[in-house]
């Protein structure tokens, strides 16, 4: 599985407006809806599910990165949105630092293996300091997509 297999090209937000964890999650789920990956009637329910998951423990994993996620019956395949927050978002991360890179995952409940492989893929690339640095420097959706393609091809 590669990043470009599950990141939705239309759900890349290169510059999130300054705001809260909730507003960031809402904007990213909205981008998935606008891209046609989830239905409008499921949008609020997915936001609520992701926020509920965050209550169990923040998905801010340090290094300025968060991976909010949920398993939801409205999708039949793993999908992801990416957002950059230049100002940083308070995600109540483990290290107490703001978050600048957000990967938001929605996966079907009956395919836990896909969810694990999505997390594996994202984590593997996030361990690469160059990947994080280049991602944060990206200005447009096209820049980000190109970076994901290079990461998939182990060119970073």
């Amino acid at each position: 599985m590669k990043l470009c297999d599950f990141v939705v090209p239309g759900a890349i937000v290169p510059e999130l407006p300054a705001g809260t964890k909730e507003s960031a999650i809402r904007a990213m789920v909205a981008s998935l809806q606008k891209a046609g990956s989830i239905k409008a009637e499921d949008e609020e329910n997915i936001v609520a599910a992701i926020l509920k998951r965050e209550e169990l423990g923040s998905t801010g994993i340090g290094r300025g990165v968060a991976v909010p996620h949920t398993k939801h019956g409205s999708t039949d395949k793993l999908i992801a949105a990416i957002a950059l927050a230049k100002e940083g978002v308070d995600f109540a991360s483990l290290d107490g630092e703001p978050v600048y890179i957000i990967f938001l995952l929605v996966s079907p409940p009956d395919r836990p293996g896909d969810h694990l492989r999505g997390l594996e893929n994202i984590s593997r690339h996030l361990r690469n300091d160059h990947f994080c640095k280049f991602l944060r420097q990206s200005k447009t959706s096209e820049d980000i997509w190109e970076l994901l393609t290079e990461a998939d091809n182990n060119e970073i």
């Binding site: 997390l119 594996e120 984590s123």
Partner: peptide, 8 residues
């Protein structure tokens, strides 16, 4: 946490 997630 990041390394553990790579075990999938």
């Amino acid at each position: 946490l990041l390394e553990l997630l790579t075990l999938a």
